[in-house]
Amino acid sequence: MTDRHVPSTGLGSPDGSTELDSSELSAMPLEFAAFRELHHPRYLSYARVWFHEPAQAAAIVEQAFRALAGVWREVLGSPNPAAAAWQILRTTVAEQIAHRDGPAGRTASERPDLPEQRSAAMDEDLAILHYVVGLATPEIADVVGSDSASIASQLRHAFRHEAADW
């Protein structure tokens, strides 16, 4: 199994510190803490592809986890919590890319408001997670909340149709 994700160096907080304080840790539901522990390193690796400055990538991942914490009960009750959490991360990253690059800098995959753009964004995400971050198909399925067969199929599709753009 290949997993070359960047190790987590801390939990981070919006004030720039890298650790949650004791009150935040004690208030965090156990399920959320476990989910965060599992997904934080891979989310951080994904963000590092878009934001090369480690502190900026960590801050964006922290922003996504704080947004996730705000809707955790709803996410946990959803049919696919991992997919819902991935969408929160992807939206947070896309918003920060748009903020950084401005409206002219956005590509179709960063504007998932039409079905074909959502598909292009997912293909791009899967390619990043597999070819750049180095995750195996089952790990990608776990991170984005899908099944391995679908991920393998989408990766083949993305490779056939978009490899020239890479």
Rank of each mutant, 00 (worst) to 15 (best):
T2M: 06
H5V: 05
P7K: 01
G10M: 10
L11V: 07
G16H: 02
G16L: 02
S17L: 09
S23F: 14
L25W: 15
F32I: 00
L38V: 07
H39R: 13
P41V: 05
Y43D: 09
L44F: 14
L44R: 13
Y46N: 03
R48Y: 04
H52Y: 08
A55T: 11
Q63W: 06
A69H: 09
A69P: 00
W72Q: 04
R73V: 11
L76A: 09
L76D: 04
N80H: 06
N80V: 03
A85W: 10
A85L: 08
Q87A: 15
Q87F: 14
I88Y: 04
A94R: 11
D101W: 03
A104G: 07
G105Q: 10
T107F: 07
A108E: 10
A108K: 06
A108R: 08
E110W: 01
E110G: 15
L114K: 15
E116P: 08
S119F: 11
D125Y: 00
L129A: 03
L129E: 08
V132S: 09
V132Q: 12
V144P: 06
G145H: 11
D147E: 10
D147K: 01
D147S: 06
A149S: 12
A149M: 08
S150N: 15
S153W: 03
S153T: 13
A158M: 08
R160F: 05
R160H: 10
H161L: 11
H161C: 09
A163D: 15
